[in-house]
């Protein structure tokens, strides 16, 4: 398992909890591991919990956008959840709105949305 995050699988959904103060390599590894898990476990939904992240800089922001894009290509609907207010404001200031990613307030909000679409 990657050092950057824990990946749990619940039904057809992969839950990814990213840890704080991850290194760039960790999060690149996570990208690889997650794409492989989506395929091997035939996941239809991915929830990435970033509540632990005190900061998201342009590098991590770009990887988050990529994670969403990759999952979408692999037919798994992806939600980024738990972003802190200060992080959201900072990302907007950095001009990174993660336009291609779905977001939800929390893990349970994302799961509810996935269930409503029959994906969880």
């Amino acid at each position: 398992m990657s050092e950057a995050a824990s990946i749990y699988s619940v039904d057809k959904v992969l839950l990814v909890a990213i840890r704080d103060n991850i290194t760039d390599t960790d999060i690149i590894n996570l990208q690889e591991e997650l794409s492989e898990r989506i395929v091997s476990q035939k996941a239809r939904g991915v929830v990435i919990d970033i509540a632990a992240l005190e900061i998201v800089d342009t590098f991590v922001g770009r990887i988050l956008a990529q994670l969403s894009a990759i999952s979408r290509l692999l037919a798994a609907e992806t939600y980024i959840v738990g972003m802190r207010p200060a992080v959201a404001m900072t990302l907007v200031e950095l001009d990174m709105d993660l336009a291609g990613s779905r977001t939800a307030l929390s893990l349970s909000h994302a799961l509810r949305a996935l269930k409503a679409k029959g994906l969880a």
């Binding site: 959840v81 972003m83 907007v92 993660l98 939800a104 994302a110």
Partner: peptide, 12 residues
């Protein structure tokens, strides 16, 4: 628009 973007990032 920035406020709307930040609100969306929060999941609302």
């Amino acid at each position: 628009l920035r406020t709307a973007a930040a609100v969306r990032l929060m999941g609302a």
